[in-house]
Write a protein that binds this DNA or RNA. Structure first.
Length: 569
RNA sequence: CGGGGUGUGGCGCAGUCGGCGAGCGCGCUGCGUUUGGGACGCAGAGGUCGUCGGUUCAAGUCCGACCACCCCGACCA
């Protein structure tokens, strides 16, 4: 590619909306441009980076026998109904009512962030026999990301180019093996880019795992064990704390607690630790805007509720805090609530509360709490379960070492759907004995734009980006010095052709610019090699080659350049 | 959710005690001089001053609402 032909412009100063060095270089170098919070234009140079990554990912997919397919971005509302049930637990619901096409007033089109429901329908139609399994389908597309944080730039954009893959298997073990293999190959890819990554459990039931790039400001929280490397999403990690010493149940007693509407206030008033309190959360489960169930979730005061755990337990996707009126309707008192004496709601009690005696809980009377509240004696539960959020310092489920809380950016996720769901959607095949069996579905996603952005944050210096070779938009920055008409141009033109014919991807800076401009741009863009054709060297039959990563500069005889470059990449 | 800040050509900013033609740097166009680490001169193009409403003879400037983005905080029952 000749730079003079390319839509390309570098900037001395990038937009200051997000102060991340890698992101700034991506903008300054003419890779991407921000449209408005969370939406990005990929300029030709940025598209080349995407293309490199896409090539590698497609190659991996083909190695597993994958076949590329094309899927629609817009889907009718009826197709994606129930989507929440089949996406990963923390994925946002599809963007409802995104589009309604004129002339079809009765039909609402949506822009869902994945294609699970569609793939189930496809599998139902196409897969009938065990002979067709396994199948791996994949596609690249720009997926909407409702749960974005624009402050992270490309690391969490409103949409991201992704690789989505769906695999269909006859048995679960086969599927799980592929999931892990895919995740391993992605982890290897990150390693090739010198990026540390963790494999983090995303779902204990579905064998889902994420690829997380640890980064202090990341929006994904996970717990990791330094001893055995077990790692899990914070929202679903099983809580394991030291069991409190057993105590004899003391008599229930009401105590005045003025202005103690929060656990913190209550604890300082009574001079007790939060672990001696029970926190009651009043929630409402809704479906289609209609109130379905009132739920009181009880967790110990030193923990927080994991909404995801509770949603899964209840099988409800819509759960919101109750309003004060709704709380009073149940006979409880906001700020002083507890399930004691309340009968009109389902009660879900966290396991820790079950095993903790003589806790302080709300008296359902403004300004009063109850001392020595004990589960079983003073109130009952519809369910008891682990519904609390795990915290740093909790014990590793596999080796009991205290866990660390870390943050990161999710680069990929693999997982499956439970057989019951496949049954429910009638996605079945006939096994060799003619018996209907549920098809096992695996779904896998790799966030390409985040990966590119993370690489940018990881690989740069004071002058600009430093791409790993496999991701670099081009291999070589070939540039001339002096006037375009002078003899160096002939040498450069020849080298450009020779390198190109040798399969080297060359970005040829043939612009009529001063040397300094070209040098600065070369450093900013960060291609692995820079080849400089200057009058002085050419007179001696040489050109100068520089490695971007090390800064090493060598002179190479013109006839040897192609060989040298190929060896250096 | 709370607090603070910002919004003016493609990018970075100034202008904000209301008052002639809305400016500067970078970038862009043309001509000339330059040419091994972001050159210089001259001449140009380019702006609904976030949106809507209000006050006024007069609003980028004052008032109100809204929107968007950034930073910090906290986050709860």
């Amino acid at each position: 590619m000749r730079l003079s032909q390319m839509l390309f412009q570098t900037m001395r100063q990038a937009s200051t909306d997000i102060m991340l060095p890698g992101y700034q270089y991506l903008q300054r170098g003419g890779f991407v441009r921000s449209v408005s919070g969370g939406a990005y234009v990929f300029l030709p140079l940025g598209v080349q980076v995407r293309r490199q990554l896409q090539r590698v990912l497609a190659h991996l997919m083909e190695e597993w026998g994958g076949q590329e397919i094309g899927l629609p971005a817009l889907q009718p509302l009826e197709v994606i109904e129930g989507q929440a049930e089949v996406t990963f637990p923390d994925w946002a619901a599809p963007l409802q009512h995104a589009v309604s096409c004129g002339g079809e007033g009765y039909r609402t089109w949506t822009l869902p962030s994945s294609h699970e429901q569609l793939m189930l329908a496809l599998a139902r139609n196409i897969i009938q026999s065990y002979r067709q399994l396994p199948v791996l389908l994949y596609l690249f597309w720009q997926a909407p990301e409702p749960a974005m944080r624009t402050a992270l730039g490309l690391l969490a954009g409103r949409e991201s180019m992704v690789l989505d893959a769906y695999s269909f298997h006859s048995d679960e073990a086969d599927r799980n093996t592929l999931c892990q293999s895919i995740l391993t190959s992605w982890a290897d890819l990150a390693e090739r880019a010198d990026m540390p990554v963790h494999r983090v459990i995303a779902d204990l039931d579905d064998e889902a795992s994420r690829l997380i790039w640890p980064w202090r400001d990341g929006d994904h929280s996970f717990l990791i064990c330094d001893a055995c490397r077990w790692a899990c999403d914070q929202a679903i990690a099983p809580v394991r704390k030291p069991v409190p010493p057993a105590e004899a149940a003391q008599p229930l007693r009401e105590v005045a607690t003025p202005d103690c509407k929060t656990i913190a206030a209550l604890c300082s008033w009574l001079r007790i630790p939060p672990s001696r309190t029970a926190k009651s959360l009043f929630l409402v489960a809704e479906e289609g805007g209609a109130v379905k169930r009132h739920v009181i979730a009880v967790v110990r005061g030193d923990t927080e509720l994991s909404v995801i755990k509770l949603k899964r337990l209840l099988g409800m996707s819509g759960l919101r805090p109750a309003t004060e009126e709704e709380i009073r309707t149940l006979g409880a008192e906001p700020g002083y609530g507890s399930p004691v004496g309340i009968s009109a709601a389902e009660v879900v009690v966290d396991q820790l509360v079950v095993h903790s005696s003589n806790l302080v809980a709300g008296a359902n009377r403004a300004g009063y709490h109850l001392l020595n509240v004990n589960y079983g004696r003073d109130y009952q539960a519809t369910y008891t379960a682990d519904i609390a959020m795990a915290q740093a310092g909790d014990l590793c489920p596999s080796c009991a070492t205290p866990l660390q809380l870390e943050h990161g950016i999710e680069l990929g996720i693999v997982g499956g759907l439970r057989p019951e769901i496949m049954q429910a959607h009638h996605v079945i095949y006939l096994d060799p004995s003619g018996i209907p069996q549920p098809v096992m579905l695996g779904r896998h996603r790799f966030y390409m734009d985040r990966f590119i952005a993370a690489t940018g944050e990881t690989h740069h210096d004071a002058m600009g980006l430093i791409w790993p070779t496999f991701l670099a938009p081009y291999d070589v920055y070939l540039m001339t010095l002096g006037r375009p008409s002078s003899p160096v141009s002939e040498v450069a033109d020849t080298l450009y052709t020779e390198l190109h014919n040798a399969g080297v991807r060359v970005l040829y800076d043939d612009r009529d610019e001063r040397a300094g401009v070209k040098f600065y741009d070369a450093d900013l863009i960060g291609l692995p090699l820079r080849v400089v054709i200057g009058e002085r060297d050419v007179a001696e039959g040489m050109v100068e080659v520089k490695r971007r990563c090390s800064g090493e500069v060598v002179k190479v005889a013109i006839p040897d350049v192609v060989t040298w470059v190929k060896g250096a990449l």
